[in-house]
Computed example of a mutant assay.
Amino acid sequence: DGEWETPLINGGECAYVVRNESGWALCAIEQAYNDKKIDWKKPISCHLYPIRLREYSSFTAVNYHRWSPICDDACALGKELQVPIYKFVKNALIRKFGEEWYEELELIAEHLKEKK
C-alpha cells in the first residue's frame, strides 16, 4: 500500500524474530526494549498485529489480518483459551487509541456476545 513494512524472510516470519530457549518466536525489538537495551517501543503496526489499520478520511478501520499458516498456532491457542483478538492486542489498542476507546470496544463486544 505504499507504506513502510516489516521485512519478511522468504515471505514467512518477520526479519526481527528471535527464538527463546523453548523455541517460541519473539520480537527482537520488543525484547531489546524489555531488556532496557533500547528506549523506544516497537512500531505500533507490529504491536497491533494481527490487527491492521486503514486510514480513511473520516475514520480508521480496524481489521483482523488472517495469515495462514503463520498465525494458525496462535489462533488455535486463542480459541482454546477463549481469548478474542481484541483482548490479545489490548495493550496495543490502548497504546494507539486510548483507554476510553478500548473500554467502549469491550462494552460493544459484550453487547454483541449477549445478542448471540
Results as ranks from 00 to 15, higher is better:
Ile51Asn: 02
Arg54Val: 10
Ser58His: 14
Ala32Arg: 06
His47Ile: 06
Tyr49Ala: 01
Arg54Trp: 10
Lys36His: 14
Tyr33Asp: 05
Ile29Gln: 01
Lys36Glu: 14
Ser57Gln: 12
Ser57Met: 09
Ile29Phe: 02
Asp39Pro: 00
Cys46Asp: 03
Pro50Phe: 07
Ser58Arg: 13
Glu55His: 12
Trp40Asp: 06
Ala32Met: 04
Leu53His: 03
Tyr56Gln: 10
Ser45His: 10
Glu55Pro: 00
Gln31Asp: 08
Trp24Tyr: 14
Glu21Arg: 11
Lys42Asn: 04
Ser45Pro: 00
Ile29Met: 01
Arg52His: 08
Ile44Phe: 03
Ala25Lys: 14
Leu53Lys: 07
Asn34Ser: 13
Tyr49Ile: 04
Gln31Cys: 07
Asn34Leu: 15
Trp40Val: 13
Trp24Asp: 15
Ser58Glu: 15
Lys41Phe: 05
Ala32Cys: 05
Lys37Leu: 12
Asn34His: 12
Ala28Gly: 07
Ser58Met: 09
Glu55Leu: 11
Tyr56Trp: 13
Arg54Ile: 10
Lys37Met: 08
Ser58Tyr: 12
Lys37His: 09
Gly23Met: 07
Asn34Glu: 15
Pro43Asn: 07
Leu26Phe: 04
Gly23Asn: 03
Tyr56Met: 11
Ile51Thr: 10
Ser58Asn: 15
Ala28Val: 00
Phe59Glu: 11
Glu55Val: 10
Gln31Thr: 11
Cys27Asn: 02
Ala32Asn: 02
Phe59Asn: 08
Tyr56Leu: 09
Lys36Ser: 13
Ile29Gly: 00
Ala28Ile: 01
Trp40His: 13
Cys46Met: 01
Tyr49Pro: 02
Pro50Glu: 06
Ala32Thr: 02
Glu21Gly: 08
Lys36Ala: 10
Asp35Asn: 14
Arg54Met: 12
Gln31Lys: 11
Arg52Asp: 07
Ala25Cys: 11
Glu21Ala: 12
His47Thr: 08
Glu21Ile: 13
Lys36Asp: 13
Ile51Trp: 03
Ala25Ser: 11
Asn34Ala: 14
Ala25Leu: 11
Ser45Glu: 09
Asn34Arg: 15
Glu21Asn: 10
Ile44Asn: 02
Cys27Val: 04
Lys36Gly: 04
Ile44Ala: 03
Gly23Lys: 06
Ala32Ser: 07
Arg54Glu: 12
Ile29Tyr: 02
Arg52Lys: 14
Gly23Pro: 01
Ser58Gln: 15
Cys27Thr: 00
Gln31Trp: 09
Ala25Arg: 14
Ser45Phe: 07
Arg54Ser: 12
Arg52Glu: 12
Trp24Gly: 09
Asp35Ile: 00
Ile51Met: 11
Glu55Thr: 08
Thr60Met: 13
Cys27His: 02
Asp39Glu: 12
Glu55Trp: 09
Tyr56Pro: 01
Leu48Ser: 01
Leu53Val: 04
Leu53Arg: 11
Lys36Gln: 13
Asp39Tyr: 08
Cys27Glu: 02
Leu26Ile: 03
Asp39Thr: 09
Gln31Tyr: 08
Arg54Gln: 12
Arg52Gly: 08
Ala32His: 03
Leu48Arg: 00
Arg54Leu: 11
Ala32Val: 00
Glu21Met: 11
Pro50Cys: 06
